[in-house]
Amino acid sequence: MLKSAPAALAAALLVSTACMAAAASPDVTAIVADPARPEADRALDASRHPAELLALLDLKEGQTVADIWPGDYWDRLFADAVGPTGKVYAAHLTEADAAEKQVTPPPGSMPIPEHPNVTSVSTTANTFSLPSKADVIWFRQNYHDLYDKFMGPSDVPAFNKAVYEALKPGGRFVIIDHTGKPGSSVEAMEKLHRIDPAVVKQDLAAAGFRLVAESDTLRNPDDALDLMVFNPAIRGKTDQFVYVFERP
């Protein structure tokens, strides 16, 4: 049975309204300022700049985010940003968990009780995969570990291609890491836990990504780039780059 013109228009408006609601942008300032957030998380905000970085990600309600080598601090924020209809995958690399002598949570488990839209994923670096395609994949301060003995090392091109395939077309791969000196060797990466930003750009270009945004939010020009990042003189104050790559 054909709908009347008014009925068809009303149905179209309902569909349009639903789509707009699904694509709504969260108020990141309100998310960060929420007094219900754990006090330990709030104490880290000054150094981590969550409002600025969430704004850079431009997450929408209903989207899917994967956090590689996950941490509850960011996963709580992502969970609030994508809302109850969105998903956050806490993506554990089994090699990293083994190296840190940590037990990988069972796949599909919910590691943050107050955020049931966060679920654990178990995968490997070289065959990285997710239960469903992601809008954003986030990898903070550990990309350099793909190169050193801590992770094997991994097959970096295979990892990046796997991340590419795990994203939706137009999806973004966000990499944050400690800045290393230009031309830094693998030995320097392992010793200092830093990486030359040019290496990251080259790696991701080779995998088919486009660099679409970067942020100076975590830059520190006073960091001489010669201290190990856990050195008390620089810990928490390292120069860090923030790159947003896109799968075309």
Rank of each mutant, 00 (worst) to 15 (best):
N160T: 00
P182S: 11
V156L: 09
A188Q: 13
V118C: 05
D145L: 07
S109C: 11
L192I: 01
M151H: 14
Y147R: 14
E190H: 09
N160E: 08
T94N: 12
S154W: 01
S184W: 04
V200T: 12
K133G: 00
A188D: 15
E165K: 15
H144R: 09
K161D: 05
L93R: 00
H178F: 01
A90G: 05
A91T: 07
A90N: 05
S122H: 03
P111V: 11
S154Q: 15
P113E: 14
T123Q: 14
S132T: 13
Q202L: 05
V156K: 10
L167G: 03
K191A: 15
K149M: 08
T179L: 01
Q202A: 14
E114N: 12
V156Q: 11
D145R: 06
F159T: 00
I137H: 11
V200A: 12
M151S: 14
Y147N: 12
E95W: 06
D135N: 15
Y89E: 06
L130M: 13
P157N: 07
D155W: 02
P113F: 09
E165D: 12
T124M: 10
V156P: 03
A198E: 15
G171T: 02
S154C: 11
D135T: 01
E165H: 10
Q102F: 02
P197G: 03
V163T: 11
K101M: 09
P153I: 01
E114M: 05
H178G: 00
V163F: 08
D148P: 02
T104L: 12
Q102T: 03
L192G: 00
D177K: 00
A134M: 09
Y143F: 15
V121D: 08
G108A: 12
V136P: 06
H92K: 03
P113Q: 12
E95G: 06
V136S: 07
P153D: 07
A91E: 04
G183Y: 07
E114G: 08
F150S: 10
P131D: 08
H193P: 00
D196C: 04
A125P: 00
V200K: 10
I195F: 08
L146F: 09
V156S: 09
A90L: 07
